[in-house]
């Protein structure tokens, strides 16, 4: 599996996601600077990491979404390349228009940093094939702007089309319908607030629920 991690000024989970990809696929990803305009040839997966981008000025992910590399990411997504946005990466994907909705300040205004229980709502995607439908998994969150918001019509459409991939098992940040992760219409772009890369090593992280996302991706890409 050939992977790339986009690095924005302020990204701080880029190395974590790089470790996860290397551990699972056996090959280190190419780290691509936000100011670049091209991705490596024959890429299978692009990860947009958590952290911050450009200080999250204006809105979280807003400036990152307009950085030079995002045109190449959007083109790749259009060709069906898998794109995974975690936390700030999710915010960048919504701001770039690759995913619907917006991520607003947490309803309680608090930064939420803890393990949360998620329900796998759709286990038939490139990202979730190693999970069972309705399975409860534990993955940590760490965010201030994770309150997923979209109009009722959009939410209904997402639910109807199986595009809600993950839901918080209990309210975490005020997200509409407890949505934690959403897919694009084609199913090859996933954005989620929880950090799967922080749950890839049972001994160090206390669990492997995040690792299974990367394993599922590897399996799908190889198939």
């Amino acid at each position: 599996m050939k992977t790339a991690v986009i690095v924005f000024p302020g990204s701080n989970c880029d190395r974590d996601v790089a470790v996860a990809l290397r551990e699972v696929s056996g090959t280190a990803p190419t780290m691509v600077w936000h100011g670049d305009t091209a991705l490596p040839d024959g890429i299978d997966l692009i990860a947009l990491p958590g952290g911050f981008s450009y200080g999250d000025y204006l809105r979280s992910g807003a400036i990152g979404a307009r950085s030079p590399i995002m045109k190449a990411v959007t083109d790749a997504a259009g060709r069906g390349v898998a794109v995974l946005g975690v936390c700030n990466g999710f915010q960048v994907l919504t701001e770039a228009g690759l995913l619907p909705g917006a991520l607003m300040r947490n309803a309680g205004l608090d930064f939420v940093c803890r393990e949360v229980s998620l329900t796998v709502e759709n286990a038939q995607t490139a990202f979730t094939s190693r999970y069972a439908a309705q399975e409860k998994i534990v993955i940590p969150v760490a965010h201030h702007d994770g309150n997923y918001s979209a109009d009722a019509e959009t939410l209904d459409r997402l639910e109807g089309e199986g595009r809600v991939a993950f839901r918080y098992a209990e309210p975490v940040n005020g997200s509409s319908r407890n949505i934690a992760g959403v897919l694009n219409a084609a199913g090859n772009v996933l954005g989620l607030m929880p950090h799967p890369e922080r749950r890839i090593d049972g001994a160090a992280h206390g669990g492997n629920d995040g690792r299974r996302m990367f394993e599922g991706l590897l399996e799908t890409v190889r198939a």
Binding site: L58, R66, T94, P100, G101, A102, M104, S149
Partner: peptide, 9 residues
Amino acid sequence: RKLLANTVI
């Protein structure tokens, strides 16, 4: 529309 406001919200 393109940057200063996010017209979703």
